[in-house]
Amino acid sequence: MQWALTAAVIVSGALTIRPMGFSGRGLAVAVLFAVNCVALLARGLPPGRVPPRVALVWLSLGVLAAAALIGVSRSGTGYLFAFFLSGHIGYRLPARQALVLAVACGLLCGGVLYFEVGPGHDLLPWAVGLTTGAPVMVGMLNRTQHQAVDAALSAAESAERAARAEAQAAVLTERGRIARDVHDVLAHTLAGINMQLELADALLDTGDLEKVRAANGRAHSLVKESLKQAQWTVHALREDALPLVETLTAMLESSGHRDALTVSGTPVDVPARVTQNLLRIAQESLTNAARHAPGGEVRVELAFTASATALTVRNRPATRTVDAGVGSGMGLIGMRERVALLGGTLTAGPVTEGPDRGGWQVEAVIPR
Rank of each mutant, 00 (worst) to 15 (best):
Leu5Gly: 04
Thr6Leu: 13
Ala7Asn: 04
Ile10Lys: 12
Thr16Gly: 06
Phe33Ser: 00
Val35Arg: 02
Asn36Arg: 05
Leu40Arg: 07
Gly44Tyr: 04
Pro47Ala: 11
Leu56Phe: 11
Leu59Ile: 02
Ile70Asp: 06
Thr77Gln: 13
Leu80Gln: 06
Leu93Ile: 05
Val100Glu: 09
Cys105Phe: 06
Val112Arg: 03
Val112Pro: 02
Phe115Gly: 04
His121Ile: 04
Gly129Asn: 02
Thr144Leu: 15
Val149Tyr: 11
Ala152Leu: 09
Leu153Asn: 10
Ser158Pro: 02
Ala159Lys: 05
Thr173Gln: 10
Arg177Asp: 08
Ile178Gly: 01
Asp181Asn: 05
Asp184Leu: 11
Ala187Asp: 10
His188Gly: 13
Thr189Arg: 15
Leu190Tyr: 11
Gly192Glu: 15
Asp201Thr: 12
Val212Tyr: 02
Asn216Val: 06
Ser226Ile: 01
Ser226Glu: 09
Gln229Ile: 06
Trp232Phe: 10
Ser254Pro: 02
Gly265Lys: 15
Pro271Thr: 04
Asn277Lys: 14
Ala282Val: 04
Ser285Pro: 01
Leu286Trp: 06
Ala290Gln: 10
Arg291Ala: 14
Glu297Lys: 08
Val298Arg: 05
Glu301Asp: 15
Ala303Phe: 08
Ala308Gln: 12
Thr309Asp: 05
Gly325Arg: 05
Val326Ile: 12
Ser328Ala: 14
Met330Glu: 15
Gly334Leu: 05
Glu337Asp: 14
Arg338Lys: 11
Gly344Leu: 07
Leu346Phe: 06
Ala348Lys: 13
Ala348Tyr: 12
Thr352Asp: 15
Glu363Pro: 02
Ala364Glu: 04
Arg368Ser: 15
Arg368Ala: 14
